[in-house]
């Protein structure tokens, strides 16, 4: 039985396979409409989320399966003090697969060690969010036609941004990948990501605080939100939240085939005037999220 806790749980070949299936689902959804008939996905969201939970549920429903679950810890037995392990053992009796979001880092791993059914990590605090990374990879593959030979700009909160860390971890496995790391001094990428992932894999990268400086070189611009919940100090959050606002003028020197991604929700970091630009891919990216989750559910349930 397989789980998806960390993007590193999947080999490059398995990711390619998921992307191929997701593209096939997009092309011929009718082929997949009953693949999960009589199967149930439980979405256990101990922390609120809109798009991740809904995209999991939409994915299972479009595969012909059923969904059940809760969307906040207050409506589960956790509020009564039940452990993650106990909740998982119980819910495993009602479902065939579980997607779980939890504010505590490592909770999905604990769940996977106790579960009788596959566990998908749908986000654990500031730690991992592998299905967002799969979504990003499918988006890049669909929009650029490749996952290698890319210069990727990562902009915003590179310190706490789990999507950024996971995307770097996933992309360094492809050839000729370069990164431009754009952030204010306080939100720079952690040293261990540089040492243990970028430098260990001999990946070229540039650090800058100027979003326009290397704009002309980018194939992908991945914007991120400065997340209020990661700050202990309100003052720091207020000072940094609007540090980068991507607008039309900042895109002047950008390539005509640049793809602008954002894991969403956005606050102010991309001006709405950019939404109509053909290079804006973030709403499409949210849609791709459903298709890659369909492919993942099929894989973990071992349904061909």
């Amino acid at each position: 039985m397989r789980n998806l806790i960390d993007i590193k749980d999947l080999t490059v070949e398995e990711i390619d396979e998921l992307i191929t299936v997701a593209k096939d689902v997009m092309q011929s959804p009718e082929k997949y409409a009953e693949k999960c008939k009589h199967k149930t996905l439980a979405t256990l969201f101990f922390e609120p989320s809109t798009r991740t939970r809904l995209s999991f549920e939409a994915a299972m429903l479009e595969l012909g399966g059923n969904v059940l679950g809760f969307s906040e810890a207050a409506s589960s037995s956790t509020a009564k003090g039940e452990s993650v392990s106990d909740t998982i053992k119980v819910v495993g009796g009602y479902s065939n697969i579980i997607a779980m979001r939890h504010p505590k880092e490592g909770a999905p791993l604990v769940a996977s060690l106790k579960s009788d059914v596959p566990i998908i990590n749908a986000g654990d605090g500031g730690h991992n969010h592998p299905t967002q990374t799969l979504t990003d990879l499918l988006t890049i593959s669909c929009e650029k036609g490749r996952l290698d030979n890319l210069t990727i700009g990562l902009c915003g909160d590179l310190k706490f941004g789990r999507t950024v860390h996971s995307l770097i971890t996933a992309m360094v496995r492809y050839s000729n990948i370069k990164f431009v790391l754009i952030s204010p001094e306080e939100l720079k990428i952690p040293e261990y990501i540089k040492e243990e992932i970028l430098e260990k894999n001999h990946i070229e990268y540039i650090e800058t605080s100027d979003i326009e400086e290397h704009m002309d070189k980018l194939d992908i611009l991945y914007m991120t939100r400065v997340q209020k919940e990661r700050f202990f100090n309100e003052e720091d959050y207020v000072r940094l939240k609007d540090y980068y606002i991507l607008n039309k003028s900042k895109l002047e020197k950008a390539k005509s085939d640049l793809a602008i991604l954002h894991p969403l929700p956005r606050v102010n970091e991309i001006a709405t005037e950019v939404d109509d630009d053909p290079r804006a891919c973030y709403f499409k990216q949210a849609r791709y999220g459903k298709f890659i989750r369909m492919a993942l559910i099929l894989k973990l349930l071992e349904i061909k």
Binding site: S83, V84, K104, G125
Partner: peptide, 20 residues
């Protein structure tokens, strides 16, 4: 790490893995 699952679920073993 105050955000680690081991901070609230006390029955879990404290396991550290050699990474370098």
């Amino acid at each position: 790490n105050p955000r680690c699952i081991t901070s609230t679920e006390n029955e879990l073993q404290q396991i550290f893995v050699l990474t370098d």
